[in-house]
């Protein structure tokens, strides 16, 4: 019993210390964003890596989710004779929840893991120490641009996911199953409110972006400088960020009063 308590205590203490270190690291990254030079070139490269290279995945996934939603919701709604509400249901589901959450999870798998692995490999091959020895702060040169890149692209990718999702559901509902296109669009238009739905979606995806940026860069930066360390950090980034995004989604949805 004593051993179990001791292990539990060590686990909790480790967790609190880890959280503190992550927050401290986040503060350093935030501070470095306001230090000259701006690192525009690196930020644009990070936006390309995290955003542009994720476009195909996000568009294909958005469309596929739209297809599935279109089919499922059409048959469910038609049981109650409410298939004309397909646009409303798809729009609200995608904009409020599925868009930001699934984008967060997909970008975590593609760009978050890559960011963590890249920074971890740079650490393992002394590239971060090499920067330090040239009196260049690796947080400013390597971490901040990548973190900012992820935060900037997350709402944009989420918006794209939602658009492709709505388009996918339209194709299934209207083109395949014969629903009226006008009622699909007008249902969507009348049900979606900017402040409650769109703004909530943008805020959620921004927060998911901050979580992913912080966790992926910190895990890479703090990993053990060897192949096993990088591999563990990458796995841990995906698992931790995915759980954090789902938890944060629940908290944000509750706070938004939906």
């Amino acid at each position: 019993m004593k051993g179990v308590l001791s292990r539990l205590g060590a686990w909790v203490t480790g967790g609190v210390v880890g959280l503190g270190q992550t927050v401290n690291f986040g503060a350093s990254v935030l501070r470095s964003a306001f230090v000259s030079p701006l690192r525009g070139r690196q930020i644009v490269a990070a936006i390309y890596d995290s955003g542009v290279l994720s476009l195909a995945l996000l568009c294909a996934s958005g469309a596929t989710v739209g297809f599935v939603l279109g089919l499922q919701l059409y048959y469910t709604l038609s049981r109650f004779g409410a298939e004309s509400s397909l646009g409303t249901a798809v729009g609200l589901a995608l904009i409020r929840e599925l868009g930001p959450v699934l984008t967060g999870l997909l970008v975590t798998g593609r760009a978050g893991s890559a960011t963590c692995a890249e920074i971890g490999s740079m650490k393992a091959t002394d590239q971060l120490d090499g920067l330090r020895m040239m009196a260049i702060d690796p947080i400013h040169f390597v971490v901040m641009p990548r973190a900012l890149g992820i935060i900037i692209v997350m709402p944009l990718l989420s918006a794209l996911f939602v658009i492709f999702g709505i388009g996918g559901a339209y194709l299934i509902g209207v083109e395949l199953l014969g629903l009226d296109g006008g009622s699909y669009i007008s249902g969507l238009e009348s049900a979606v409110a900017f402040r409650e739905d769109v703004l909530q979606s943008i805020v959620k995806s921004l927060i998911f972006g901050v979580l992913l940026a912080l966790i992926s860069t910190y895990r890479g930066y703090a990993c053990a400088p060897n192949a096993v360390g990088v591999s563990r950090a990458t796995t841990s980034t995906v698992v931790t960020t995915s759980v954090c995004i789902l938890l944060a989604d629940f908290v944000l949805t509750s706070l938004w009063g939906v």
């Binding site: 490269a45 330090r132 040239m134």
Partner: peptide, 20 residues
Amino acid sequence: LGRMRKQLGMLFQNGALLDS
């Protein structure tokens, strides 16, 4: 330390050049 390091140069065992 950054200021001090401006008077140092370091050749790492694996080069430590930036891959990108």
